[in-house]
Deep mutational scan, measured.
Amino acid sequence: TETYETTDETEARKIAEELKRRGLTFRIERHGTTIRIESD
């Protein structure tokens, strides 16, 4: 499991693209301005 936290929408998108490219599944949670991406 890898966890990323960012407040930057663009960075979050880049992380999501990278995880997809590596064939990982992940979920995105939003907590206020923080975007949390957690891979399975």
Rank of each mutant, 00 (worst) to 15 (best):
Thr1Pro: 11
Thr1Cys: 14
Thr1His: 13
Thr1Ser: 11
Thr1Gln: 10
Thr1Asn: 10
Thr1Gly: 11
Thr1Met: 11
Thr1Ala: 11
Thr1Ile: 13
Glu2Val: 13
Glu2His: 13
Glu2Trp: 15
Glu2Asp: 06
Glu2Met: 13
Glu2Asn: 09
Thr3His: 09
Thr3Trp: 14
Thr3Lys: 09
Thr3Leu: 11
Thr3Phe: 13
Thr3Val: 15
Thr3Glu: 05
Tyr4Gln: 01
Tyr4Leu: 02
Tyr4Ser: 01
Tyr4Asn: 01
Tyr4Arg: 02
Glu5Ala: 04
Glu5Asp: 04
Glu5Lys: 03
Glu5Pro: 01
Glu5Ile: 13
Glu5Tyr: 13
Thr6Tyr: 03
Thr6Pro: 02
Thr6Glu: 01
Thr6Phe: 07
Thr6Ala: 05
Thr7Met: 07
Thr7Ser: 10
Thr7Val: 06
Thr7Lys: 07
Thr7Asn: 10
Thr7Ile: 05
Thr7Ala: 06
Asp8Ala: 02
Asp8Leu: 05
Asp8Phe: 04
Asp8Arg: 03
Asp8Cys: 10
Asp8Pro: 01
Asp8Gln: 03
Asp8Ile: 05
Glu9Ala: 09
Glu9Leu: 10
Glu9Cys: 14
Glu9His: 06
Glu9Thr: 05
Thr10Ala: 13
Thr10Phe: 09
Thr10Tyr: 10
Thr10Val: 12
Thr10Ile: 11
Thr10Ser: 11
Thr10His: 12
Glu11Tyr: 07
Glu11Asp: 05
Glu11Phe: 07
Glu11Gly: 02
Glu11Ala: 07
Ala12Asp: 00
Ala12Tyr: 04
Ala12Val: 05
Ala12Thr: 02
Ala12Ile: 04
Arg13Met: 13
Arg13Leu: 13
Arg13Ala: 12
Arg13Lys: 11
Arg13Ile: 11
Arg13Phe: 10
Arg13Asn: 09
Lys14Arg: 12
Lys14Gln: 12
Lys14Asp: 07
Lys14Trp: 08
Lys14Ala: 11
Lys14His: 09
Lys14Ser: 08
Ile15Gln: 02
Ile15Leu: 05
Ile15Asp: 00
Ile15Tyr: 09
Ile15Glu: 00
Ile15Trp: 08
Ile15Gly: 00
Ala16Thr: 13
Ala16Met: 15
Ala16Gln: 11
Ala16Asp: 01
Glu17Lys: 08
Glu17Leu: 11
Glu17Ala: 12
Glu17Ser: 09
Glu17His: 08
Glu17Trp: 10
Glu17Val: 07
Glu17Gly: 07
Glu18Gly: 07
Glu18His: 08
Glu18Gln: 08
Glu18Ser: 11
Glu18Leu: 07
Glu18Trp: 14
Leu19Phe: 08
Leu19Tyr: 04
Leu19Ala: 01
Leu19Ser: 01
Leu19Gly: 00
Leu19Val: 01
Lys20Phe: 09
Lys20Leu: 12
Lys20Glu: 09
Lys20Gly: 06
Lys20Asp: 05
Lys20Trp: 11
Lys20Met: 11
Arg21Leu: 07
Arg21Gln: 07
Arg21Thr: 07
Arg21Gly: 06
Arg21His: 06
Arg21Val: 05
Arg21Pro: 00
Arg21Ala: 10
Arg22Lys: 07
Arg22His: 05
Arg22Gln: 06
Arg22Ala: 05
Gly23Glu: 03
Gly23Met: 02
Gly23Asn: 05
Gly23Leu: 02
Gly23Tyr: 02
Leu24Asp: 04
Leu24Ile: 13
Leu24Trp: 04
Leu24Met: 07
Leu24Arg: 10
Leu24Cys: 15
Thr25Tyr: 12
Thr25Pro: 08
Thr25Trp: 12
Thr25Glu: 13
Thr25Val: 08
Thr25Ile: 10
Thr25Asn: 14
Thr25His: 15
Phe26Tyr: 11
Phe26Asp: 15
Phe26Gly: 07
Arg27His: 14
Arg27Leu: 10
Arg27Pro: 09
Arg27Gly: 04
Arg27Trp: 14
Ile28Thr: 06
Ile28Leu: 04
Ile28Val: 11
Ile28Gln: 03
Ile28Arg: 02
Glu29Ser: 14
Glu29Gln: 09
Glu29Pro: 00
Glu29Lys: 09
Glu29Met: 12
Glu29Cys: 15
Glu29His: 10
Glu29Leu: 13
Arg30Pro: 02
Arg30Trp: 13
Arg30Met: 12
Arg30Ile: 14
Arg30Val: 14
Arg30Gly: 04
His31Phe: 13
His31Tyr: 12
His31Trp: 10
His31Lys: 09
His31Cys: 14
His31Ile: 14
His31Arg: 10
Gly32Ile: 01
Gly32Arg: 02
Gly32Cys: 10
Gly32Ala: 03
Gly32Met: 02
Gly32Gln: 02
Thr33Gly: 11
Thr33Trp: 04
Thr33Val: 10
Thr33His: 08
Thr33Pro: 09
Thr33Glu: 12
Thr33Phe: 08
Thr33Asp: 13
Thr33Asn: 13
Thr34Cys: 14
Thr34Ile: 14
Ile35Lys: 00
Ile35Trp: 12
Ile35Leu: 03
Ile35Tyr: 07
Ile35Glu: 00
Arg36Ala: 02
Arg36Leu: 08
Arg36Val: 08
Arg36Asp: 00
Ile37Val: 04
Ile37Phe: 04
Ile37Lys: 00
Ile37Trp: 01
Ile37Thr: 00
Ile37Gly: 00
Glu38Asn: 07
Glu38Pro: 00
Glu38Asp: 04
Glu38Lys: 12
Glu38Leu: 15
Glu38Ile: 15
Ser39Asn: 03
Ser39His: 07
Ser39Asp: 02
Ser39Trp: 15
Ser39Glu: 04
Ser39Lys: 05
Ser39Val: 15
Asp40Leu: 14
Asp40His: 13
Asp40Lys: 11
Asp40Ala: 11
Asp40Pro: 15
Asp40Tyr: 14
